[in-house]
Design a protein around this nucleic acid. Structure first.
Lengths: 164, 164
DNA sequence: ACTGTAAGTCTTGAAATAAGACTAAGTCAA
DNA sequence: TTGACTTAGTCTTATTTCAAGACTTACAGT
């Protein structure tokens, strides 16, 4: 499969993976969620090849997940910040981190704890149904074709902006 | 970075990515969640190279995400089924699918709708705090070293997640 | 014996990655 | 005004991974 063409792919997961499915990309985003913003800081904390970092950051900017903001003039320097679209990846990242914590943390426990500021507690993430609020289980979900299923998909490919 | 050594990596996200961070792996798991179980069915629905599929399935079995169950003797044939550990990836997958739906679905809407069987409604996934039940936002979460942390390594990163 | 099926394995060329040297455009200090 | 430093990249080369599809194994049915 040629991944660069996945933006025309039908499945939402495949489209999402075309953007963030690369091994480095989620680690770059993790750093971004931890507050890292500058090229050299990404490089130092991840020990990623500069060439690969450059390419990933460019792709993420192109896709609207990050944006470049100037933080000084002369010489002009930019930092990379999460957009709304980037922040919307938080559920994916936190659930994956918690999966890693659950199955790969050593005896000592997870390396990092997440505290929910409003309630003040360390938490796990719980994915719930937007309609009834119950916790979701894979076995309690059925799939059916949506309005954008195959027949109508080609017509509507060109749109770009975020939709809620 | 050598990905095969990430099982000894410290960060839970990096460890998780060492298992499912490959581009094909999440698509293989999506098929598994949709009920696909046999080698040839994975191959046909994903159009993945057989060699790559074989390798991915083996890794997922080795990691305990899938397990091989015989479905016939003579000749012995196995199918691949999700384990509990595999089912625990559902939150990650559903949130990523919904991210794709939100930002990449065409005007027609998402290609697939998910119905929550117990309540009977089509839903979006909502990630909530296990302690207070409120929906989570990246900006409302702070990080701190957990019991399994390398104390010095993470001190510099202890800051508010995703300040903009 | 011949055809079919399921689950792989092997081969080969193309593409992506890692490591690190190099470049660009400016600042600062002597 | 020369030289060292900073930030953000780009380039080069060797290694690794991937895609495509032919080939293999082990059995069944006719």
């Amino acid at each position: 499969m040629r991944w660069e063409s996945l933006d025309r792919e039908h499945c939402s997961l495949a489209r999402a993976l075309a953007v963030i499915g690369d091994r480095w990309t989620l680690l770059v985003l993790r750093e971004a969620f931890m507050g890292v913003r500058r090229f050299d800081d990404f490089e130092k904390s991840l020990k990623i090849a500069r060439r690969v970092l450059s390419e990933r950051l460019s792709l993420l900017v192109e896709e609207g997940v990050l944006r470049k903001i100037p933080y000084q003039e002369r010489p002009i320097r930019y930092e990379y910040r999460l957009t709304e679209k980037g922040l919307a990846l938080y559920p994916t990242i936190i659930t994956l981190v918690h999966w890693g914590d659950r199955f790969y943390a050593g005896d000592a426990g997870p390396p990092i704890l997440h505290t929910h500021t409003p309630c003040g507690h360390d938490f796990r993430s719980v994915v719930t149904c937007s309609e009834c609020g119950e916790a979701l289980d894979a076995r309690a979900v059925t799939l059916r074709p949506g309005p954008g299923s195959l027949k109508t998909a080609n017509r509507s490919r060109l749109r770009t902006a975020a939709r809620r």
